[in-house]
Design a protein around this nucleic acid. Structure first.
Length: 229
DNA sequence: ATACTAATCCCGA
DNA sequence: TCGGGATTAGTAT
C-alpha cells in the first residue's frame, strides 16, 4: 500500500482501493446461505483503509442485518471441518480473547481460537483512528474499546496487526518499484552490450574495422569486451 | 493454493 | 510492561 490509497498485491499491479471488491465473511452454508455481506471490510480482499462511498451492511448488537432483514446472530453454522460452530455477536467480542475453553487437541494449554470478524462499523472507526494515529495510547484504546464494544485487548491487537499489515504493504510497494527499476537497468544493460557487439563507425555509420579506429578507441573497446565476460 | 485477519506466544527494550 | 516479530487458525477467493 502506498499512502495514496493504492493496494499492491505483490504482482506489481497496484489497485485503486475503490476497485477492490467487497466480500462477505461468514459462510452460513447450512443454516442460511443468505447471510452475506455482514462484515465486509476486513476480508482477504479487504480495504485496509476505509474509503468514502462505502455501503456497509451494518451489524448491530446481537443482530445482523442485510437489506433490512434482521437475523439472530447466534446462528449455528458449519466450520470448514463440518463441525457446528456458533457465530458470535458483537456483544460477544469481549469474550473473544478471554474465553477459557481449552483446545481439545494434544495441546491442552492452548486456547481454541473462535473465528470472528469485527463489524464494518468497528473497522471503519478503527481505521479512521489509525489514519490519524497508528500508535494510540492506552487511554485512546480504552476509549475506542468502550465506544466500539470491544475488549481493550482486541483494540490493541487490531492496531498491532494493522501496523504489521501497513508495513508489509509498504514493503511490497517498494519491492515492486525496485523490481521495475531492476527491469529497466537490465534492459539498458542489454542494449549497451548489443551496441558493443556491433561497433559502428562514427564517420560513415558502417561497421567499424579495428584498423580504422584510433589506438585509444581500440583500448576502450577491448576493455568493454573484457567487462562483458 | 494463497491471501487475509484475529489472536497467541515469545522476546527484547 | 509494552510493542514487534513470528506464528497459528479460521475463512474467503
Amino acid at each position: 500500500m502506498n499512502l495514496n490509497g493504492f493496494l499492491d498485491d505483490g504482482s506489481g499491479a497496484s489497485k485503486l482501493l475503490s476497485d477492490v471488491p467487497y466480500n462477505n465473511h461468514f459462510s452460513f452454508s447450512v443454516v442460511d446461505t443468505t447471510m452475506l455481506g455482514t462484515t465486509a471490510i476486513a476480508s482477504s480482499h479487504s480495504r485496509p483503509f476505509s474509503s468514502s462511498g462505502l455501503s456497509l451492511g451494518l451489524q448491530t448488537n446481537g443482530e445482523m442485518s442485510r437489506n433490512g432483514e434482521i437475523f439472530e446472530s447466534n446462528i449455528t453454522r458449519k466450520s470448514s471441518r463440518g463441525e457446528d460452530v456458533e457465530s458470535r455477536s458483537e456483544s460477544d467480542n469481549a469474550e473473544a480473547v478471554s474465553g477459557d475453553d481449552l483446545d481439545t487437541s494434544d495441546r491442552p494449554l492452548k486456547k481454541k481460537k473462535r473465528y470472528h470478524r469485527h463489524t464494518p462499523k468497528q473497522i471503519q472507526d478503527l481505521e479512521s483512528v489509525f489514519k490519524e494515529c497508528a500508535h494510540p495510547d492506552e487511554k485512546q484504546r480504552l476509549d475506542l474499546s468502550r465506544r466500539l464494544n470491544l475488549d481493550p485487548r482486541q483494540v490493541k491487537f487490531w492496531f498491532q496487526n494493522r501496523r504489521t499489515q501497513m508495513k508489509t504493504q509498504i514493503e511490497r510497494h517498494e519491492n515492486a518499484l525496485l523490481r521495475q527499476e531492476n527491469d529497466k537497468l537490465r534492459a539498458e544493460n542489454m542494449s549497451v552490450r548489443e551496441a558493443m557487439r556491433n561497433p559502428m563507425c562514427g564517420n560513415c555509420g558502417g561497421p567499424a574495422v579495428i584498423g580504422e579506429i584510433s589506438m585509444e578507441e581500440q583500448h576502450v573497446f577491448q576493455i568493454r569486451l573484457l567487462l562483458e565476460i
